[in-house]
Amino acid sequence: MVLGRGTRWLAGTLVVACLVLVGPSAPSGALFVRALPVDAASDVVPNRVMTWNICNPCKESNVERAAEIATYAPQVIGLQEACVRDVERIRDYLKSLYGLVYHVEYGMVLQDRGRCGGVPWNPGSFGQAVLSAAPMTDPVDVEYPNGGSEDRGYMAVTTTVGGQPVRVFNTHLAQRRQEAVRADQVGVLAAEVARHDRAIVLGDFNAVPDAPELARMWALAADTDPQCRPALIGNCEPTTDWQSKFDYVFLRGVVPLEHRVHPTPYSDHHLLHTDLNTN
């Protein structure tokens, strides 16, 4: 059950009060719960999807990450550079502090103690995750044959957006200056996306809109920003601190209604969310 705005505020206030009584519990020794802005979404927005590279290793607070997500309360969130432990905490905070209940599926591509903690014989898992307010089915986790300088992959689930079933993909392509590797990765991803008449592809593609390696994605789907096309790159809103558009919500058989890009102090990538017409 999703709580209304007043109940969510009361729940957050009670949690803060309890934290004051029992003391801090964050690894850094303090847990600060930020109140949501007055214009925050009151409930999960059923036709809203979001993509966010949460930055790792950045040592940011999962409480703050949860507050950023709760402000916009999307139906579906695709996270990149995510550790399982971080996603678990973010999901717990969304529920306990803001009354937002999400299911989760993972697309982990490597075990990395340096990024995700753990012990040498059991390091944390690193990759992608999808959180959805509706249950997810038919999860797929694919590691690209060539990840480049670091393992990369995509995941896919079927879930509900705007009351309609849709296939949702989440990916993170190879780092910059690896154009040929990204082109191969897009080929793998695009072949799977092409099998679906209705698909939403979220992710950090590490490439600007007119990069040649994205050509196969543009042939299949449009970005949620109707002004952003390879030939119109000057009109594409940046999604990173270095003023490049690397983050996309590609749509196939789904109509965009409104999108927003939100810079955040908690990652070098901005939050990108969009409201959709899935009918």
Rank of each mutant, 00 (worst) to 15 (best):
A40Y: 01
I233V: 06
P57G: 15
L14R: 08
R8S: 09
E258G: 04
V186G: 00
V193T: 03
F246A: 02
D241T: 04
D210S: 09
I233S: 11
R229L: 15
G114P: 08
L14V: 08
A183T: 03
F205V: 02
Y102S: 00
Q164T: 14
V157C: 06
L110W: 05
H269W: 02
N53D: 06
E179V: 15
R177K: 13
W218H: 01
G187H: 12
E192Y: 00
Y248W: 09
V166K: 04
Y266T: 03
S267A: 07
R252Q: 12
R195A: 09
L3G: 07
D39H: 14
N206I: 06
A191N: 12
P24E: 14
W218I: 03
P139I: 07
L271A: 03
V104L: 11
Q75M: 15
Q185V: 02
N62H: 10
E150F: 10
N56I: 00
L21Q: 11
V254W: 00
A174L: 01
A221C: 04
G234R: 07
Y98R: 05
T240I: 00
G12N: 08
T7D: 12
P263M: 10
G234I: 05
C18I: 15
I54R: 05
L94T: 01
M155I: 07
V76T: 02
L10M: 09
D39R: 13
S42D: 14
E64G: 01
